[in-house]
């Protein structure tokens, strides 16, 4: 079992969950309707739970405990994709990101459920049941808003255009793609991206949206290697503000 490969995989997935969960939670009290405040908060809680689960496996592999990992690192030690660290912007962008990200998440955890690495497979079986609802929520709203009226349709199309290359950055290859695949731990980012395209493209088209020209596809890379936008630094500083008053204290 290639521990270095597993750790790299777990860190990036956990960091994605933590950061998107944090962003989702920022809608609390500020959503366009109360029901959406509540929905984004539910998803945020799930994502945080998923992050915690992944960090726990890392801890069992000898890394620091979940609180220390999440609340004590610097931004450049995070391996999330840049897509999830972008600020929430308006509801259109948040929703589009949620839709695109959660489809990738669902497929990823379905793959994990068949992983040869037992702890991951076990976690994934639980997690994928929750992501199902996130995907359902995203599908419903994308459909509703993309077809409701001119304003909402234009907003959703713009959000898609702005999100697309960032979304492709989810699938940035890691250092151990071949090892993970050979050992049956994870099919790899390339396979994940292909499946994701097969799922999201028809859904977007059905909602009447236009997928950006293939010639313009340029995945935003770097996040997996610790290169981030200033947004993540601000997010991490905020997230760890209280914890860092005394990292050894019980809070």
């Amino acid at each position: 079992m290639n521990v270095a490969a597993i750790k790299e995989l777990l860190y990036k997935v956990a960091d994605d969950q933590l950061v998107i969960g944090h962003r989702n939670s920022e809608w609390t009290g500020l959503g366009p309707i109360l029901e959406e405040d509540i929905a984004f908060s539910s998803m945020a809680q799930d994502k945080l739970g998923h992050a915690q689960g992944c960090y726990q496996i890392l801890h069992d592999l000898g890394e620091a405990n979940p609180d220390q990992i999440a609340f004590s690192r610097k931004a450049d030690q995070f391996h999330n994709c840049q897509f999830v660290e972008l600020p929430n912007g308006e509801y259109d962008f948040s929703l589009m990101r949620h839709f695109l990200y959660d489809h990738a998440d669902q497929i990823r955890f379905e793959m994990f459920a068949n992983s040869s690495f037992e702890p991951l497979a076990k976690l994934a079986k639980k997690v994928k049941g929750e992501i199902k609802y996130h995907v359902f929520h995203g599908n419903t709203w994308i459909n509703k808003l993309s077809t409701a009226n001119e304003v909402s349709k234009i907003r959703m199309q713009t959000a898609l255009n702005e999100s697309w290359n960032y979304a492709l950055g989810i699938f940035e290859a890691g250092n151990f793609e071949a090892e993970l695949k050979n050992e049956g731990i994870f099919e790899g980012e390339n396979a994940l991206q292909n499946k994701w395209l097969e799922v999201v493209c028809p859904l977007l088209e059905k909602a009447g949206l236009t997928i950006p020209e293939k010639s313009s596809w340029e995945p935003v890379l770097g996040g997996r290697k610790g290169y981030h936008l200033a947004h993540l630094e601000a997010l991490v500083a905020e997230m760890s503000e209280v914890f860092q008053i005394d990292p050894t204290a019980t809070w």
Binding site: L30, G31, P32, I33, E36, E90, Y91, K144, L145, A148, N149, V151, S152, R155
Partner: peptide, 11 residues
């Protein structure tokens, strides 16, 4: 900021 969403829901 949420008005457009509520308008869209009314459609």
């Amino acid at each position: 900021r949420g008005r457009w969403v509520r308008e869209a829901l009314k459609a």
